[in-house]
Amino acid sequence: MNKVKLFIDGRELLAPAGEKLLWVALENDIYIPHLCAIREEQRPSACCRLCFVEVEGRKRPVTSCTLPVREKMMVKTRTPAVDRLVRTAFELLLSDHRLNCGKCPKNRACALQRIARERGLKLKPGRFKALGREFPPIDESTGAFAFDRSRCVLCGQCVHADQQVVKVGAIGFSRRGLDRCVSTFTGVKLADSPCTRCLLCVEACPVGALYPL
């Protein structure tokens, strides 16, 4: 396979042509915040808006999950513009996320905590008010795992596992705007859905929305 030479934060790297920048960086131990990225997806959803980087020749920060690497690409993962967007996106996500990490089953293994640690951000909505929305009660109907919508960041990792990997189709995205959510068809309990309790969705969840019981 064709390899290209690129520079990330001054480090010279070789990577397969066409590979998306995010994966090249992660493989070389260069951390870029991300929640929704799925390597196998032909068309990345690019919805979490956290994996911004600056690339020479581009005016604005771009999402690294959608950017194929090119020969002689010059990438910076930390610039004032990148940090600003990441901080805002992060604070926005936290403004709609139930934040009592101490009691969260994903405490210390949460992708949000990792982002905060790596980027020196506080685990707080910062400038924004917590939306404090009402969410449906935690669904523990399967007995095998729980689904807590108040901690969901809508990254789509679970939906991908369910629909693309095991091809069950128990869950999917529904509704629009602020009401967008992961749910079963017509919103029935997971136990009443085609869910096979394979737990792949639980494994895929980067935060504490899906966790084993």
Partner: peptide, 21 residues
């Protein structure tokens, strides 16, 4: 626009809501 946001990406879904508030 906040009402018409599809809700897919963080900035539009939550950013427009925070701005509106």
């Amino acid at each position: 626009t906040q009402h018409e946001s599809c809700g897919k990406c963080t900035f539009c879904r939550l950013g427009t809501k925070q701005m509106l508030d």
